[in-house]
Amino acid sequence: MIEVHQLTKIFQDRKRGAIRAVDGVSFRAAPGRIYGLLGANGAGKTTTLRLLATLLRPTAGTATVAGFDVAREPEKVRAHVGFLAASTALYGRLTAREMITYFGALNGLAPAEIKARLRRIAAELDMDEFLDRRCDQFSTGMKQKTSIARTLIHDPAVMIFDEPTLGLDVMTARAIVRFVRECRDRGKTVIYSTHVMSEVEKLCDTVGVIHGGRLCAEGTVAELRAKHGEQDLEEVFVKIVGAEGSP
């Protein structure tokens, strides 16, 4: 479960002054459901997710992830979160096995447990063939599988995906989408940020439209379509964002 209340993040910039990257955002994501954060580049999606993953500290507001407060118990939050983003890379000089084992150890798992979980995940993701090869020799698909295994090794209750299909080919992107659905089916709380409308339609149970750091609209895809009188989600998005004005 994720509960966000009036979450705000202000960055200080020497030239531009105070920048409200996230401005009083509130929402709730439930277990076994996918909450989509839809927004253009620079809308505040990544900052919101980094706040939830405790990579950044909120300026104001609160958020609890898996029952832990992001400001007061960041380490406990991270222990219950799997964070996958286009910007979270792999250690090129480690093998996939070493990489996953390392993150298992960082999550406090015993070596025997890591071994057992790794065996199971590698079989599920069909990784056995390249498990002992260095990550810098991997194709994009192999890298994504290894990253997924890295996020799953500690079996987190909450999965946060920040534009995970960015720059991927169709087949790899489809594999990611399938994996996100599986996470939901296993009862995990999933947050998925994207600016790709088709992904939102395919995946998200609830959508929050974020623009200029503010959550402008929230609901199921069907509810948003009905409210704005448009079938094309892109048109719905433009109407919502247009009503809010440019950032």
Binding site: R78, F83, L106, N107
Partner: peptide, 14 residues
């Protein structure tokens, strides 16, 4: 630069 710092910061280690 390689993007592994963010990956590492996602771990629960202090």
């Amino acid at each position: 630069e390689r993007g592994t710092m963010e990956t590492l910061l996602c771990s629960p280690v202090a």
